[in-house]
Every structure is written in structure tokens, then in C-alpha cells.
Design a protein around this nucleic acid. Sequence first.
DNA 1: ACCTGAACACCGTTCAAGT
DNA 2: ACCTGAACACCGTTCAAGT
Lengths: 199, 199
Amino acid sequence: MPSQPDFDLEAAEIITAAVEILSESGLDAVSMRNVSARLGVSPVPLYRRIGNKEALLDAVADRLLADLAPPIGTGEPWTEYAMRWALVLRARLRGTRDGRFILWPGRDAYVEASRPLVASMRGGGFSADAAVQACRLLTWATVGFAAVESGVPLRGAQRTRSRPGSDPRGVTEGESDALFDLHIRYLIEGIADDMESPG
Amino acid sequence: MPSQPDFDLEAAEIITAAVEILSESGLDAVSMRNVSARLGVSPVPLYRRIGNKEALLDAVADRLLADLAPPIGTGEPWTEYAMRWALVLRARLRGTRDGRFILWPGRDAYVEASRPLVASMRGGGFSADAAVQACRLLTWATVGFAAVESGVPLRGAQRTRSRPGSDPRGVTEGESDALFDLHIRYLIEGIADDMESPG
DNA sequence: ACCTGAACACCGTTCAAGT
DNA sequence: ACCTGAACACCGTTCAAGT
């Protein structure tokens, strides 16, 4: 069994406890009191190590987004890598419960994850500024899509007798996947076109 | 002076009070207790008229998004109208305090606002399904962008001695505008291309 | 130094009364 | 029928003590 934190309380343990509660019980259950209770401690030490709840959620988000970017294939064109990169980011956001709370793409993990994408684009002939802007466009689009998606009720797989597409308030998982693919593809095509003939 | 709600309490008054508190003090101040206090009433009637807090925020969002879609110009091509439509939606989301809480594009106001855009696209030769899908793509992209944008710290106008673009965590208001314009333009171009040569 | 118990000022929601 | 006061089970955060 893991040793109990009787004598020391590292920030990493606090973040781990918060991540566990998030995945088990959702964002609403991630309270300073719940996290401290799981650690067998009063809430006060959390304020000493982490600061406040906002800082805790920030740290949780960074943990959940760590090691995000996939490796670049040798000779892989930037358009292909960008597509893979966006799919991986969306999958990670979807995979974390209440992922819409990870909504600030300035956080460290995003900056870290951007590096290989920027590098891939620079290898494809982009200037530094153009690569950063294109990368920001794809990041914002992906994070925004995932946030919206997480708020939309899934129509699920129940056998419906209504025509497909007739209910504008729900979306099939497949429809959502197709929409994301289309979205990112349009952006990559647009970026590629603008690079060949800059206006 | 307006009459006091001594004897009757309509749902519309509740929503109005919530909207006022939202714009004056932000989302955190929109509590059932605060709203009821502004109306000079205990919290209980809100539960009788509205249901619960989630329903109240839903109603607030619908109110804030009412009468969203701009009128279509005569002979205006769908590409132009779509661009205007997206700009208006983003402006509305930016204009409401803590606009990121309006994150579920299935809500009634979005459906309502979509109608002229779908009509414009159908006039441009889209099938019903294609128009609905294209409209959904633009809506999700705009709402997602606004949500991300509202979470990103603005770099503001302070005279900085660092190179532009050197701080990846902040974005100038002009950069944000340009990014949005680019984003939507790429999507419209992609949609238009796919319609001319469907794959 | 670092913890705890207790408190402060809030929440959303419900219940037993009142009129 | 529709309101109110009071309560329940929570929050984030801080403070005066304890060791």
C-alpha cells in the first residue's frame, strides 16, 4: 500500500489527489475540502503549498495536458502532422472529465505542446511568426471545438424513428467526429494556400 | 419609478434581474440568493417559477442571444452573409460579461439565429443537409473561438519593450480579431470549395 | 515552521410552517 | 396557492491557537 502522507505534503500529491477526484466524481467534486480530506489533512496546507483553488485547477490542467504532442514522423509533411496533432489534442480534452474547464490555451502545457508543431511548420517553409500564428489558430480551434462539444448533448445510440439531422439540439458522436475533421482540414488547407500565395 | 413586485413575480422579471446582476457584477454574483434579494423576495419563488439555477442561466443565455441574426442583404452571396453572421455572433458573445458560460450551441437562441444563415445557404445552392452542417460548423467555430478568447489574458496596450509575438501567453486585441477573421474565412472558403466539387 | 479546530461569509435547495 | 424563516449540506478562505 502507498505510504500515508503523515509528515510531508508535496504539491505533486495534492495535484494527484485532485486529478483522481476529477476523474472519479467530476469537476464539481474537486473542492479544496474534498482534496484535503482525501489526503487526510485539513484544507489549510493546500493553501500553503498551492495557493488557492484557481492555482490548483491550473496545476491539474497542466498535469492532464503533459506530454501531449506526438512525435514527428521522418519526412512527414507539416499538413499531416498538424492534423495528427489536432486529433491528439482533441482526444486528450475529450478524455478528461469536464474537459471544458481546460479553456485557457496560454497555459504552459499548450506552449510546450506547440513546440513540435511550430518546428514542423518551420521545416515546411514557414517564417517564425507565420508558424506561431498558424499554430495558435489550430490550437484555439481545437480547444474551442472541444469546449463546445463537451457542452452539447450527445444524441447517443438510441434507435430513433425521426429522420437524421432533424433534431438540431443533439449530435451523433460520428457527426461530431466528421465535423471536427472537416473543421481542421479547412484550416490546414487555408493556411497552406495562404503560404503559397501570401496576400 | 417601476412598480415593485409585491404581488406577482413573473419569470421574465427574474431573468431581467439575473441579466442585470450578470452585467454589473459578473457570473459569480449571479446566485439564486442574489437574484431573489434584488427582487425583494426569498429564494423559494425562483424555484417555483424557473426551476433551478441551471434553468435560470439557460434562460439568461437565451435572453442575451435573442434577435441575433442580422438581416440578409438583397442579392447578398451566402459567403458574405456568413462572414457577417459570424462577426455578429462573436460580438454578442464578447459583449456579455463572462460570455464563456454561453457554451451550449444547441440552445434555442442558436437554433433561431441559424435560420437566416441556413436560408442564405440554401439560396446559394446548398442541400438542406449541407446547409445545416455548414451552419453548425460556423456556429461551433465561432462559439468555441469566443470561449477560448474569453479565457486568454489580453496583453493590452502597455508599452512593451519585447518583440511582438514573443509572449505566447497573451494576445493583442487586434491579433485576436485578425485570428478570428482568418479562421472564419478559411472555413467559408473550404465550405465553398467542397460545394463546387463534392468529394 | 507547520498543523488543526473553528469560524466567516457565502452557496443551492428544501421543508415546515404561516397567510 | 404562494409566500417566509429556518434549516441542511455544502463551498473558499482565514485566523487564533496548538505542537
